[in-house]
Simulated assay, not measured.
Amino acid sequence: MTTPRDLLIVAMDAESGRALERGDLSLALAGAELIDLLSAQAVRLDGERIVPGYRPTLPDRLLDQAASLVQQSPYESVDDWLWRRGHGLAAAYLSALEDDGEVTREHRRWRPFEAGQTVLADSPARRRAMDRWTSREAVLTALATAARINGAETGGEPAEVDDAVSTVLAAVHDAVTELEAERQRRAVEKAAFDNIWRGDGS
């Protein structure tokens, strides 16, 4: 299993009284992919630019897709990577887990994703992910915090990660914050439009 898959399993397993924002989770999953690529030495960071390393064969299909990077300078920034790679990534990973038999469909609503009826299977992958979660593994916990997964609050960035991972975690946090600000802006604009439509703004 990979950090993105573990993160999605944690997101599904965590009790939550609200629906997770798929956009937030997708950005965090993209960050998890980049951290795994750093760990595999498939990439390195030059400041905030992602520089390709050697091209390993990665057993996970989605992570292998993620390793297709800009090969020439100027390289892609971490921020640009998160927005490009993160588009629709939560749905892609959910589909991959379903294809691998890690999740099943039931005739009841699963709370984190309002549109889904998907529940986790009792599998070694689930137990591994939850072991990382219950042990408060630094990277997984920080990514879960950025995605606002219930129970993930840590009170700050973990100290035991290296500079490159810290850069990715900070970028994920900033991207999620930016996305939330955009959602709020659109909500305000919609409310103002609705008021005008009803004649309340005259």
Rank of each mutant, 00 (worst) to 15 (best):
M1V: 10
M1W: 07
T2W: 14
D6Q: 08
L8S: 11
L8N: 10
I9W: 02
I9N: 00
D13N: 14
A14M: 10
E15I: 01
R18H: 13
L20R: 03
L20G: 06
G23L: 04
S26A: 06
A28Q: 03
L29N: 13
A32S: 08
L34H: 13
D36P: 12
L37K: 00
Q41C: 11
Q41I: 07
A42S: 02
A42T: 04
V43R: 02
G47K: 04
R49N: 03
I50N: 03
P52E: 00
G53W: 04
G53I: 04
Y54W: 03
P56M: 06
P56R: 00
T57S: 05
L58T: 01
L58N: 06
P59S: 13
P59C: 08
P59G: 12
L62S: 11
L63D: 08
D64A: 11
A66T: 01
A67L: 10
V70L: 09
S73L: 11
S73E: 12
S77M: 12
V78N: 02
D79P: 01
D80F: 10
D80L: 09
L82W: 12
R84Q: 14
H87Y: 02
G88V: 07
G88T: 07
L89I: 09
A91M: 07
L94P: 00
L94T: 02
E98H: 12
E98R: 09
D99L: 14
H107M: 06
H107K: 07
R108C: 02
R109P: 09
W110K: 08
R111E: 12
R111L: 15
P112E: 04
P112D: 07
F113I: 15
G116A: 01
A121P: 09
S123E: 05
S123I: 10
A125N: 12
R127Y: 07
R128Q: 13
M130Q: 14
R132M: 12
R132F: 01
A138W: 05
L140A: 11
A142M: 10
L143G: 05
L143I: 09
A144K: 00
T145R: 15
A146Q: 08
A146K: 08
A146M: 12
A147G: 07
A147M: 13
R148N: 12
I149V: 15
I149M: 15
N150K: 14
N150C: 15
G151K: 05
G151E: 02
E153Y: 14
E153F: 14
T154Q: 12
P158H: 05
P158M: 10
A159K: 07
A159M: 08
V161S: 03
A164L: 08
A164N: 05
V165M: 03
V165G: 01
T167F: 01
A170F: 03
A170G: 11
A170V: 07
E178T: 06
E178H: 03
L179Q: 11
E180M: 09
A181Y: 04
R183G: 01
Q184F: 09
Q184K: 10
Q184T: 05
V188E: 14
E189S: 12
A192W: 04
D194I: 00
W197G: 14
R198G: 02
G199I: 15
D200V: 07
G201S: 11
G201E: 09
